[in-house]
Nucleic acid binder design. Structure first.
Length: 209
DNA sequence: CGTGAGATTTCCT
DNA sequence: GGAAATCTCACGT
């Protein structure tokens, strides 16, 4: 089985450089039974410890956000709204507290498993298929990422990220972030333009460029 | 298609 | 005690 994870140094890059370079990359997930799922990252958001009041790390380290302050290249999974998990890639240096939220992915391999995780069964319903991974909590459910995946090292072999096709600069869109109440003006959401798996739930977001 | 409410638990003030 | 980096369903146009 292929295992070509991006290295630790990739994750040490500047938050925003890392966020845009994650677009187009493949996230690979090995399930407990050994089956492999893969999906292309099409939408992300950057969260910075410094000057970003919407980042979980903004007010300093707590038990919940401690993974954000650890080594880069680890997965920070948080639980929210009483029922959802979302996952982030820890960026920068140890102690920096920056992370990239993965907001949407495009299924590549194992879409039937993803459908089962999301809906309890394989379906041919077009609407359900198009909604299987186009949101941060949706993709976590599809890839079976939850509390026990918090803190996983992406440089090991349970969940990792591989380089994808290189994207031209003009294929990347920018906007303000979705679903936050502070830092609304920061254009820190990045996505692949014209990709149908990008989430469309954003209200009141502002596009740049 | 757009808007709005409810779900349901964890974390931090 | 209140807010939360969300999702789904119901209802109105």
């Amino acid at each position: 089985m292929m295992h070509a994870p991006l290295s630790r140094s990739f994750y040490k890059q500047d938050l925003h450089v890392l966020a845009t370079r994650l677009l187009g990359c493949l996230i690979i997930r090995i399930l407990d039974d050994g089956r492999q799922l893969s999906a292309r990252i099409v939408e992300v958001e950057a969260y910075a410890q410094k000057d970003d009041p919407s980042a979980h790390s903004f007010n300093g380290q707590t038990p919940r956000n401690k993974v954000m302050f650890g080594a880069p290249g680890h997965l920070y999974v948080y639980f929210t709204y009483g029922m959802h998990f979302c996952c982030n890639v820890v960026a920068g240096e140890i102690g920096q507290g920056d992370a990239v939220l993965i907001r949407a992915v495009e299924p590549v391999d194992g879409i039937e498993d993803m459908l089962v995780h999301r809906y309890g069964e394989v379906t041919s319903d077009k609407k359900k298929i198009s909604n299987v991974t186009n949101g941060p909590a949706k993709l976590c459910k599809a890839l079976k990422i939850n509390r026990s995946e918090n803190g996983i090292d992406l440089c090991e072999n349970k969940i990792w990220i591989e380089a994808g096709d290189k994207l031209a600069e003009n294929m990347i869109g920018h906007s303000t972030r979705i679903g936050i109440n502070h830092g609304k003006d920061l254009p820190w959401r990045y996505f692949i333009k014209d990709n149908s798996w990008v989430s469309k739930s954003g209200k009141g977001i502002t596009y740049v460029g």
